[in-house]
């Protein structure tokens, strides 16, 4: 077990001396080897997804890991089988509405809990943290009955509403707000801004990284959401990409070439958002953990 642990903490002192030292060299080699293995395992399924989309289903079944010439056939099959523009529009619309509303409501609450403390509100906050541990499975049934009694089954509202006030995101914003400089707020007050103006014109621009990290988390959660939309979206024309592609895989003889082409399309938006916001994401996480 020391073989694995040693390379993790290769000393700076030792490395500064730059003298060749065999155990140290081996330790570093093992460290790079293990990291490369981890990177390979992490990336391989992405490679497989792209390769698979260019192969026939039969070849995927026998593990052919080289590029084939079936990309256009798979694409054509995919567009012929599913109403792609519609399902991706459904997914995008739900994810966008969900993200905007969640960020608005939850960041306001996180800011409010941190900036205006009172004994009573602290108690509410503690109660909320307790609720955080209630699993969704416990809420699923009553939520469904409630949504049906509101006659909302099959609407975007049904998908989005239960998630807007996210305790996790409220908690995240409260933690991040602790780093928001109080002098900025005081200065803004002296300049005559009211509390809402301070939030809009001072807090929002200052906390860009925090919002970026939250956008990544919330957008991904909404775009990838599966169980709840599966329950409340019952009309075919409202199904999201996630639901439709999942249904394709559970057919008796799934056409994996076509399905993998679909999963590329379904993964692209979250990949793009991640790479666009990556730097801010890391900063935002740092702000919240500090």
């Amino acid at each position: 077990m020391t073989d694995q642990a040693l390379p993790l903490a290769t000393s700076r002192v030792e490395r500064r001396t730059r003298s060749f030292n065999l155990p140290n060299f081996v330790a570093r080699a093992i460290k790079y080897l293990l990291l490369s293995l981890a990177a390979f395992v992490s990336i391989f399924p992405f490679f497989w997804m792209v390769v698979g989309a260019t192969n026939r289903s039969v070849d995927i079944g026998i593990g052919k890991a080289t590029f084939g010439d079936q990309l256009f056939v798979n694409a054509a099959n995919f567009f012929a089988t599913v109403d792609a523009p519609r399902i991706f529009w459904n997914s995008a619309f739900i994810a966008l509405v969900g993200t905007v509303l969640t960020l608005a409501i939850s960041s306001l609450a996180g800011y409010g809990f941190e900036m205006f403390r009172s004994k009573f509100r602290e108690r509410i906050f503690t109660l909320m943290l307790l609720l955080l541990s209630i699993p969704f499975a416990a809420l699923m049934v009553p939520l469904f009955v409630m949504i049906s009694s509101f006659k909302l089954v099959g609407t975007v509202a049904a998908v989005v509403l239960p998630g807007i006030a996210s305790i996790f995101i409220i908690f995240y914003f409260r933690q991040a707000t602790k780093a928001f400089p109080g002098e900025l707020r005081d200065a803004a007050r002296v300049d005559g801004l009211n509390e809402w103006q301070i939030f809009l014109y001072i807090y929002l621009p200052t906390m860009r990284s925090t919002y970026a990290a939250a956008i990544i988390i919330v957008f991904m959660a909404n775009w990838n959401n599966y169980l709840w939309p599966l329950i409340v979206l019952n009309k075919p024309e409202q199904k999201t990409a996630t639901l439709v592609i999942s249904a394709l895989t559970s057919s008796y003889t799934p056409d994996f070439g076509m399905i993998l082409f679909g999963t590329i399309l379904a993964t692209l938006p979250t990949l793009v958002i991640f790479f666009l916001l990556q730097r801010r994401f890391v900063e935002g996480m740092l702000g919240a953990v500090k």
């Binding site: 306001l108 205006f116 509410i124 909320m128 209630i134 009553p142 006030a165 409220i170 509390e195 809402w196």
Partner: peptide, 25 residues
């Protein structure tokens, strides 16, 4: 009062979509 207005929307939603379903279940 301003403090309450910031957190009120979230509290109302949590009450409807979390607290009530929990008690109901």
């Amino acid at each position: 009062i301003t403090g309450w207005t910031f957190i009120a929307p979230a509290l109302v939603l949590l009450g409807i979509f979390m607290l009530y379903p929990i008690l109901w279940s």
